[in-house]
Design a protein around this nucleic acid. Sequence first.
DNA 1: TTGAAAGCGATACCAA
DNA 2: TTGGTATCGCTTTCAA
Lengths: 375, 375
Amino acid sequence: MSAKPYFERHLEIKVKELEPDHADDCTLKRKPRDFPRVSGARPTVSSLARLAGVASSTVSRALKGDERISPAVRRRIAALAAEAGYTPNALARGLVGGRSGLVGLVLGPVSNPIYAEMMQEAVTEAERRGLRLMLLHAGPGPIEDSTAAALLQYRMDGCLITSAGLSSRAAAICAANDVPVVMLNRVPKLHAVAVSCDNRAGGEALALHLLETGHRRPAIIMGNADTSTSLERAEAFATALVEAGLEPPRRFPGGASHAAGFAAGQAIAGLPARERPDAIFGCADILAMGAMDALREAGLRVPEDISVVGFDGIAAAAAAPYRMTTLSVPLSAMIARGFGLLAERMSGIPLPDEVVLLRGTLQRRGTVRDTQPPG
Amino acid sequence: MSAKPYFERHLEIKVKELEPDHADDCTLKRKPRDFPRVSGARPTVSSLARLAGVASSTVSRALKGDERISPAVRRRIAALAAEAGYTPNALARGLVGGRSGLVGLVLGPVSNPIYAEMMQEAVTEAERRGLRLMLLHAGPGPIEDSTAAALLQYRMDGCLITSAGLSSRAAAICAANDVPVVMLNRVPKLHAVAVSCDNRAGGEALALHLLETGHRRPAIIMGNADTSTSLERAEAFATALVEAGLEPPRRFPGGASHAAGFAAGQAIAGLPARERPDAIFGCADILAMGAMDALREAGLRVPEDISVVGFDGIAAAAAAPYRMTTLSVPLSAMIARGFGLLAERMSGIPLPDEVVLLRGTLQRRGTVRDTQPPG
DNA sequence: TTGAAAGCGATACCAA
DNA sequence: TTGGTATCGCTTTCAA
């Protein structure tokens, strides 16, 4: 539902070439006002060295503020570099230093907005740490081999994997080549480094919340079958209910999109009234949103007729028309921690694998009916 | 509404270290089964040359299928490389060749899902062309200087800019340094290369559709004031209405998020009935979606009481609970064309600026009431 | 058809 | 405190 075959159609193309004189303005008389550029080649360490009448090693050291270079020379070279518009060549630097400053990012399908939110957080955090993000994958399905190969080709310092489970290829390549990997929002089956929300605690918290508010027949809409995330959430949720003396909750197949949640919601709405659950737990907000839409379309009111809770805390679920009660995962903190773990491992010192679990927060909003006020 | 200050809170961290023996399993006995790796250093052209008993230049040539190397040698070296698990070092290659194979990507705020969809398309297309995407920015606000500098540091071959108008900094840096830029979904005010939807044609098509279906008082919810996209769409829409003899449509301030559309929708719903528009054009789907939600919450039915149309064709707008009539932009085709333009310019041959306009498609769905069937 | 050698740009080591 | 120089891995003349 996300990647449309637009490609073949819509090829009615209008090309508007700009007037030649303006084009010239752009290609020839380019004004180096804001970003000066030496005519011809870009300035390099050795060209600066020649200008300054020193050795290139001195320039290199001066530019990174080496204490051993006299302040006077340092200042002079810095000024020269600024004037010439010098930019270090990260390729050369990476070649000799062995570290590229590049971090790979593997994202899941954008049909679940949480990946976009994670991406935005990752960009911010990477910026803060002076790292660059290489977008290796985004979408359903597994990562292409050629793309995964880029991990090695560009000598990436590490890799962040957020996708549910389909990126084992990238993980394997990293493992085989000592490229540090951190899994985000996903507890790996194999040994690895991961930062995740405490899905069990979250699932339990949601179950307790539903119990406290008087629900007796919750159902679950499952995420993708192969994701630990979904499984853990559902498992903990179910366990808490059973421990409270309820029947094991019914499970409906879901996925990772609004459409999947919608289908599950339709199935639930179509149930005879006496079989109908009194609450739905969507293992991801996007699923719960889809379910809500299906329920409403079927004439059921949320939360009057049926309560709905989600898990993720995406922005869209917080707003109208959902205002969904959910367990929000601390995205920023997770990303920050993930970069932290990565940075530690990028230094080369072998560190043991670890799994960091951050606790989410129950967001009480408007989709849970309180039939049984406490006290 | 998108980037929450989660960072400071939620720091209750549980660290679960794996058992030492397992950790060892991962750090020491790493199995090079799937992705073989030479013990110690990775194989290089010269290490392969030594193994094969030829010169490194021969290896280099053989590996890229140079006709001048005898087929026998070529095969032998290829086999050797495969066996050793050789991976070319893109950093070194970029250093000598002057081309990095890297393309920068600048995205807008993820509060508008269209950026995520564009990102996913871009990943696919980059893969197809053997280019790597460096994520330079994603979010509202302008790009960081340090990030923009990466364009030069990593000697990127080009840059794709999708963000509305805030990335002029990146554009300026590119312009000053002969890095080709292509603007996506945005017609630049300055001379540049761009691929966009024909926003005027689209706005007009939507206006005509509303006219044909008997609407007489449409209103517009504007996008960000500084985006050509929104302006063009609104302008063409308004012009078509006026040419049909209607009053100029009322304009409501909007933005680039559901929340902005929602606020505009509330303002419209709060209007006295006789002042209320009979249709709303949201300059972006996400705005129209927000407006729909506000209208429905205010008890107005869409399309019975008021029609709504959008522009973009994002996946979320096509599904329940919106099923919105909209003008969809051919995203895949735009991205493909954008990469094409970039590729042409990456060769170094100076080409004139051009603007490519692709026509969108009116998607008639369920949010326009047909009061006046044709004929 | 293949080899030797000169860089690409930056860093780091060893001298001075 | 600074200068040479080797080196990172690969490509590309220029010779053979």
